[in-house]
Design a protein around this nucleic acid. Structure first.
Lengths: 354, 354
DNA sequence: TCCGAAAATGGAAACGTTTCCATTTTCATT
DNA sequence: AATGAAAATGGAAACGTTTCCATTTTCGGA
């Protein structure tokens, strides 16, 4: 079933010339007589010849391939990153090899190793923990151009990322302005994402600076499918909280559902703010207040940075630090109901059926 | 900056042995004395040697790489397909090279060509039009194992797909049972997706069989960002329609928003049914009625089919044709309001502000 | 100590390219 | 027709592997 594809040697033979000549003609470089050119081209066409990138890559020690590692495609943020990076790579004649790490540092490092073995010319990566990444060490050892996405710059690797701390601080400011005092920070797999951690830290610091209570860390262990139940438990156990900042929009949306299931009105009984700005947030009622980021710009930028280094050009600067995010108001964020502002232990409002 | 990675020759030299011996030791096959083994292993470790897949692939004419072409990652259905295919490929020691065709047959065929040039061992593909795909011709010519996803089987290529016609017929049945007579079929880029076309045809046939009016084809030209405006125009121009079947959930969701923007209540004034079963459909109010599919199963199945052929095993059968989809009821589908059932040209209900 | 078999070893070819360089051909001048 | 420069050509090496096969080493037993 598997056919041996014709090689340039076959073409040369059929055209009755040397492989060097065939190569020159087919690549359009170097001299060749009109007669030979025609013979070679005809032979190639008849054989249906296509270059094998393998031989080429081996010869040139260049693969025109970029590796890309992201945690998951289920998160539209990364789907967008990948798509944009891919488009940009293609534009420059590069292909993209994708690997998903599933938020697992072990898989992440294995993926990077494999990509390196495949001799990718460059890498675009979102790692679990930028400070301590075996994968990144490998990359450095090989000296392969690499840009980080949604991680902050570190150890000389350029980064296309959101200023997580500033964004989180902004959210704290919004909460404060509306009169919230007790908030929670909702995170999934906290330990496996330094993005999450940075957002929490920025949020906590700002809360302190604004005279709010220390935010409660609501951490959820990944239990596929159980999400809603876990959220309900968490919400029920923390009834004094009037606002929740979720480390991403998916969680925020899930929290909205869970809260509604418990009969808590949004935003009167509970305000929710997300992070990312995915499209779904605009489809729900009320709209999700969130930190809007631009994943496509990040993916494209990271690709451009890597490609520029490969082309020997000076890479573009990272994103303008002042504009990596914007805050989007939405119906999910409002002032807390008066009775909640006392910070009483248990809310007194009867849970109305929605 | 770019470092020349150590080759097996370097290892052999440092271990003072031949490359053949080094290769045997490093691969763990073939005989080797304990002494030599140690020397080679030590040399490799000191040098930080890793095999280059390039030389290997050239030698074995096998890349342990699968190519994957989907229209877009922005649609979570395909993101899931890719993710599942990737996971399955990895499990078997294969990598995945991704390409997005952006629903463009031209890009699609180019992507396939590039993948073939890269000597992928197999392909997992969703094409724009299964009947007429230059890319698929290339694949056949090369004899590379290939499975289709979300396309129907064709010309000997196995497929992991939904029975679009049956699913569409089911939707027609649901509409009919509720008393709908005038419906519309909403599609984006109709000409670029045979999935869309099959859904429409199945829907139209079933409508006819059920004594309903021929569904109006509501086609939208891709105008990034204008979607909502276009939908509003379409809805305003077709006020006798009581139900819309959208060719995918994204469109359905957008239609819901547009309808609401026009003051039309869902489902009283307009019922909407989607296709795919993406998570967002469960987050909106009312929930989106839709045809639920299992993209992960499709991606995984397609990968398994290809991998089995590569391993010389007999590939799994495709999905059970009777279970490729299920219908999910949702608040977006209900009986039409009585006054609409007359099929009058203009609805008489005043557009209330939502 | 020597023999033969088994184990270990390394040279060389092959995989499909490109490119260097030496050789051959062409062609315009004389 | 002879000359020389320019153009065209093809052999061979190199890229990093694996594998075949011939050669060398080891080792148990006589």
């Amino acid at each position: 079933m598997k056919i041996r594809p014709p090689t340039i040697k076959d073409v040369a033979e059929r055209a009755a010339c040397g492989v060097a000549t065939a190569s020159r003609v087919l690549n359009g470089r170097g001299p060749a007589s009109e007669k030979t050119r025609r013979k070679v081209l005809a032979a190639a066409a008849e054989l249906g010849f296509e270059f094998s990138d393998l031989g080429r890559s081996l010869q040139s020690s260049t693969t025109r391939t970029l590796g890309c590692v992201v945690p998951s495609l289920a998160n539209p943020v990364f789907a967008d990153v990948v798509q944009a990076a891919q488009a940009e790579a293609n534009r420059a004649g590069y292909q993209l090899i994708l690997a998903c790490s599933d938020y697992d540092p072990e898989l992440e490092s294995r993926a990077i190793r494999t990509l390196l073995a495949k001799q990718v010319d460059g890498l675009i990566v979102t790692v679990s923990n930028v400070e301590d990444s075996e994968g990144l060490e490998q990359v450095r050892a090989r000296g392969v151009p690499c840009a980080l996405v949604y991680n902050r710059a570190c150890r000389g690797f350029p980064a296309w990322s959101v200023d997580n701390r500033a964004a989180a601080a902004r959210v704290a400011g919004e909460f404060a302005a509306l009169g919230h005092r007790h908030t929670g920070f909702l995170a999934l797999e906290f330990g496996r994402s330094d993005r999450s951690r940075e957002r929490f830290e920025g949020f906590a610091e700002a809360c302190a600076a604004l005279g709010m209570a220390q935010p409660v860390l609501l951490e959820i262990a990944e239990q596929e499918g159980q999400l809603l139940e876990l959220l309900r438990a968490l919400l029920s156990a923390n009834r004094d909280i009037t606002g929740i900042f979720a480390s991403n929009d998916y969680l925020a949306l899930a929290a909205m559902q869970a809260a509604r299931g418990l009969g808590r009105r949004i935003p009167q009984d509970l305000s929710i703010v997300g992070f990312d700005g995915i499209a779904t947030g605009l489809m729900v009622e009320p709209n999700l207040a969130t930190v809007v980021t631009d994943p496509r710009a990040m993916g494209e930028g990271a690709a451009r940075t890597v490609l520029a280094r490969l082309a020997g050009e000076t890479p573009p600067a990272g994103p303008d630090p002042a504009r990596t995010f914007s805050f989007r108001r939405g119906g999910s964020l409002g002032p807390p109901a008066p009775e909640s502002m006392d910070g009483g232990e248990a809310a007194t409002s009867p849970p109305p059926r929605q």
